[in-house]
Design a binder for these strands. Structure first.
Length: 477
RNA sequence: GCUCCCUUCGUCUAGAGGCCCAGGACAUAGCCCUCUCAAGGCUGUAACACGGGUUCGAAUCCCGUAGGGAGCGCCA
């Protein structure tokens, strides 16, 4: 669905959402879901979706992560109206390139005296935090530099001490807002310590750059992880001091593992890359994510466009959602079964022997697709169908032994006559032995594949190179 | 420690005082179909964390308890 397929109700400002990752690692499930939800939230109202890279931490941010992030998002089917590779007048979309704007806004705040330089060193701050914690108190900034006189500030500056800029949080006030997922929220400013808005190296800190960018980029709805909920008052304070409009904030619960603890490598693969490499379909992942912490009356595999139409922020969950790979597997199976012939070929091609005839390839895939969830499920069948005669697994040894020589000589003869036509072979065996049902088919399956279970025999046989079937049947004659 | 968030079947969830001895989907069990598996059809098992209130009536409102999570960073 294109952004213009649904137009915003006239008179209402266009909805703008964003995904704002920091390029300090691989895109993981939680972030991918946040991105998806924001995309859907925008598209649902015919709005715009932005991608902003929060790379203010020069030490940890890597360009390669940004590139990978964008590739992962696109793989999932998420595309943005504006972003680092699609700049517009609200950009640039990399925070590392927005220093001028931040400097202007710092100046606005400095004029109001809501900012003050803090000369405390990281070790000092760490010490203070630890002391407070062990005294059973909240580890907040102690306010050491809050009320320095101009002379004291000048003296420290003269010593060459690098200063951060802190936000002077007012005392005794209450910050309220309506979280569009959780409802009304209220925080006391006395519980909030003065926080850093500009680092000693001059770069903008998260609370500041994130809030300012949302305002200047015209973001109307910021849907993010619940870990940001208690930080929201700080950002509201900044925006209020700047006289900028805040977006509506909504916080989705975190994704947890099967045991209810925060999702980690211990539970499952957490990066999108791993799922992609294991052969998961992007649509499978999107469908699972769509229903994780979000509910819809719709059943079955949905396209991104359908998800956008059905997305409803009112049905965003407040409780943490457990990520279970088994559930993802259900969507994966659905997605695989819905694969077009071309897509299925592309999906399984890496497993197939090179130089295979196109018709054989297609027959093989058609036979196998209903029985596989991941490419690895198809792997053994490549050998069974295209390799040498398969050894019998123990479960079917007796099936073959009990069939009797007449069974297989009839089968082999039919195979020689009619090629890999299952019904011709079955007819011949039926005529020769009088068998029917499982007694008729199981020895064929066993001799042909070595296994008791597998894809349907007729299509599988069509994929098998000529002569192979006859050879396999003849070996028990 | 302080502040905040959360708690309905195994899982994702519906539910905004009577429509709920709680509905759906997936998972799971049984049956049917069937050469096996898968698919499909039918049937079933299965949950309001706990304790107090308020009310004629509570999954829904209030208080508390327990458990889980987040934040309190010159990380985002």
């Amino acid at each position: 669905m294109s952004a213009s397929a649904i137009s915003a109700p006239s008179g209402e400002p266009q909805r703008v959402t964003r995904f704002a990752p920091s390029p300090t690692g691989e895109l993981h499930l939680g972030n991918a879901r946040t991105a998806l939800f924001n995309l859907l939230l925008a598209r649902n109202a015919g709005g715009r979706f932005l991608l902003r890279i929060e790379d203010t931490d020069a030490e940890r941010s890597l360009d390669s992560y940004t590139t990978a992030l964008m590739a992962d998002l696109r793989w999932l089917g998420i595309d943005w109206d504006a972003g680092p590779d699609r700049e517009d007048e609200r950009g640039p979309y990399r925070q590392s390139q927005r220093g001028t704007l931040y400097a202007q806004q710092f100046a606005v705040l400095e004029r109001q005296d809501v900012l003050y330089p803090c000369f405390c060193s990281p070790p000092e701050l760490e010490l203070s935090r630890r002391a407070q914690l062990s005294a059973g108190k909240p580890p907040r900034y102690a306010g050491t530099c809050r009320d320095l006189t101009p002379a004291e500030r000048a003296r420290r500056q003269a010593q060459g001490l690098a200063a951060t800029l802190r936000f002077r949080v007012p005392r005794g006030e209450r910050v309220t807002f309506v979280d569009f997922v959780h409802g009304p929220q209220s925080f006391l400013t006395d519980d909030i310590g003065d926080f850093v808005v500009r680092r000693a190296d001059g770069s903008a800190a998260f609370f500041f750059s994130n809030a300012v960018d949302d305002a200047f980029m015209g973001v109307t709805q910021a849907l993010r992880g619940e870990d940001h909920l208690t930080n929201t008052p700080r950002q509201l304070l900044i925006l209020a001091a700047l006289g900028l409009a805040a977006p509506a904030y909504g916080h989705v619960s975190l994704i947890v593992g099967a045991d209810g603890t925060p999702l980690s490598k211990r539970h499952a693969a957490v990066s999108l890359r791993e799922y992609r490499e294991r052969g998961y379909q992007p649509l499978a992942l999107a469908n699972h994510l769509f229903r994780l912490g979000h509910s819809t009356p719709l059943h079955g595999l949905l396209t991104l466009a359908e998800m956008a139409r059905a997305f409803d922020a009112a049905h965003l969950g407040r409780a943490p959602s457990r990520f279970e790979e088994q559930q993802l597997g259900v969507w994966q199976k659905e997605a695989v079964h819905h694969l077009s012939a071309d897509a299925a070929r592309a999906w399984l091609a890496p497993l197939l022997p090179v130089g295979l005839d196109e018709r054989v390839t297609d027959a093989f895939i058609a036979a196998l697709l209903p029985n596989v969830v991941l490419p690895e499920d198809a792997r053994p069948w490549v050998d069974i169908v295209f390799g040498g005669p398969p050894a019998l697994e123990p479960a079917v040894e007796e099936v073959v032994r009990n069939a009797g020589a007449g069974y297989f000589s009839a089968a082999a003869a039919a195979a020689a006559r009619s090629g890999n036509d299952l019904s011709a072979i079955a007819d011949a065996v039926r005529a020769a032995t009088g068998r029917q049902g499982a007694a008729l088919y199981m020895p064929l399956r066993a001799a042909l594949t070595g296994r008791a279970h597998g894809p349907e025999l007729a299509p599988l046989l069509r994929a098998m190179p000529a002569g192979k079937a006859r050879e396999r049947l003849a070996r028990f004659a």
